[in-house]
């Protein structure tokens, strides 16, 4: 469904023509493979979910949504974990790479998280008779996780010094990840207040679910995360490059102020410049 359309594989690009803009995207051989693999796996999972698997004994046809929902719900933690690793790398080694990975992980994670909530709600309506059930641990934990990283992305979008923002974001990401187990335990205990029966997920009837379709689902979501993360990371890297080009210009411009005489810079305050 999202096959990269760039026709020229970068491996074939001779270095002599590297300056020619043959590739003007974040695609590469790697992402092409990932993208094609992802598209194929989507088709396979849809076939497996709707035709190759049998309805579940307890859930009936509704189990077919599980082959999308369950991998999303479990693998959504992977981008967030990458975000945490990137944040630690940044704080520890001042790794720019880690910072960009953290940003990419948070954004992909929020998309995954939101989709988990939506597919979960759509599944909950016919099962529980309601879109939302506060007594389900995973629902509530996932919701808070989503909100925590929505805040993270909001902080990321506040304009300002990139290093400062990276530090703040890294701290926020670590706080969020520390908070997740606490939230999970709290919600699990909290839920026992009501006598509401637990969701089917909590009882873990994995054996009822078609193992092959589930495996395909995990492969599909995993490839999707790899594809999206790669592209998102490269976008973050490009943004940093654009920023840096602007900075080189700004320094050159600033030095030119001195060379062309003092009068040129009169009235220009750092504050004005900082907002550009």
């Amino acid at each position: 469904m999202t096959v990269p359309t760039n026709p020229s594989p970068d491996l074939a690009t001779p270095s002599a023509t590297a300056s020619a803009p043959l590739l003007t995207s974040t695609s590469s051989r790697l992402t092409q493979v990932l993208g094609i693999g992802w598209a194929i796996s989507v088709v396979l999972v849809v076939c497996a979910a709707f035709w190759w698997s049998e309805p579940d004994a307890t859930q009936g046809e509704l189990v077919r949504l599980f082959y999308l929902h369950v991998p999303l719900a479990i693998l959504e933690y992977v981008p967030f974990l990458l975000c945490g690793i990137g944040s630690v790398l940044f704080l520890w080694k001042r790794s720019e790479w880690g910072d960009l990975m953290a940003h990419a992980g948070a954004e992909v994670g929020v998309v995954m998280c939101a989709l988990t909530l939506v597919t979960g709600a759509v599944w909950g309506r016919p099962t529980w008779g309601t879109y939302w059930d506060w007594s389900d641990v995973r629902l509530v934990t996932t919701l808070i996780l989503c909100l925590l990283f929505v805040g993270y992305l909001a902080l990321r979008r506040v304009p300002g010094d990139p290093t400062t923002r990276a530090k703040q974001a890294a701290i926020v990401a670590l706080v969020a990840l520390i908070d997740i187990p606490l939230i999970n335990r709290s919600v699990e205990w909290w839920e026992n207040r009501t006598l509401h029966q637990k969701g089917t997920i909590a009882q873990g009837k994995i054996e009822d679910i078609n193992a092959f379709a589930t495996l395909l689902g995990f492969i599909m979501v995993g490839l999707g995360i790899a594809f999206l993360m790669t592209h998102r990371f490269r976008i973050a890297w490009l943004e940093r490059q654009v920023d840096r080009v602007g900075l080189d210009d700004a320094i050159a411009h600033r030095r030119a102020e001195a060379a062309t005489g003092v009068d040129a810079s009169v009235g220009r305050t750092p504050e004005e410049g900082g907002q550009q």
Partner: peptide, 14 residues
């Protein structure tokens, strides 16, 4: 753009 030069194994975040 490091991924557009000669290497396929680029920083991917994985």
């Amino acid at each position: 753009q490091r991924w557009s030069t000669t290497r396929a194994d680029t920083p991917t975040g994985r």
